[in-house]
Amino acid sequence: MDWSNVFSQALTQGIGIQAVIFCLAAIGLNVQFGYTGLLNFGQSGFLAVAAYGLGVSIAYAGWSLWVGLLVGIAAAVLLALLLGIPTLRLRADYLAIVTIAAAEILRLTFRSVTFDPIFGGSDGINRFADDFYRYNPYSGPVKIGPADFSQNDMWIVTIGWILVVILSIIVFLLMRSPWGRVIKAIREDEDAVRSLGKSVYSYKLQALIIGGVMGCFGGFIAAIALQSIQPDYYSTDLTFFAYAVLILGGAARVLGPIVGSVVFWFLLVLIDGALANAVSSGAIDFIRNDQVGQIRYWILGISLMLLMIYRPQGILGDKKELSLDAR
């Protein structure tokens, strides 16, 4: 492995499938957490119900791709209602607790033996998305600068980034509208908003649904790109990485999730490749090759901590805004 290969790998992943998935998850979190201040710690659950809604519709029920997508979106809306209706009148931390628990319950249900015939147990659902690749306009592998994509990857990545652009435009429009003004006001002081005649509860529920549906597109991309839905992919790590992506890029910034996910995956793969390279060439001899995977997360974690200390607003955030006491 040579250094230019490490770099081109990092670039490929920086605009690749994982970056798209986490970008979509983070766009949803941005609406919920960034703009509204809702602590949704169960974003992985929204991606999971979307992925399984799609997979089960196609593989189990035998419906088309389009129906599968609608089922996935409906499942995300339903999940938002189930989580939001009982908790959003309560203090903010209740939503956090309930969402993190619900996401784990969903994952364990999807991987359970009982539902194996439907959800496929721990093997998940596989090879259900051939329909999607039938529409593939690319006739072979594609190179974009040093980045390299197979024919199928290029197709899903193209669709993924188109979705990112569309959803980002919607977020932009929402947040400069009077609706977005209410949302941002709720983040700062719910009682002030109530005193002006707006139902905080209703707006929070809307934000939870919108953010869940936007995030659920990440679940579709994950499912289709890998032609496989693995229950353990939708663990709490996914949620926390999506938060890392959002905070790195800058919360409450339309482009925050995009910048965050590109930088996050570029750096993660770069660190990984560089370490592996250095270890196998003997430049670093106190780490074994099989430890590189763990150590890159240490480095990433430390980098995120340093970022929070020296640039808490993220790459795109506004320090001036952050320094105002919101309460």
Partner: peptide, 24 residues
Amino acid sequence: VRPHKVAKYGMVRTFQLTKALSRL
């Protein structure tokens, strides 16, 4: 009656500890 409804019905209050929305 919930506070936002009270405001909608035309009774609006301010707070002793001000609630200006700082980041707007």
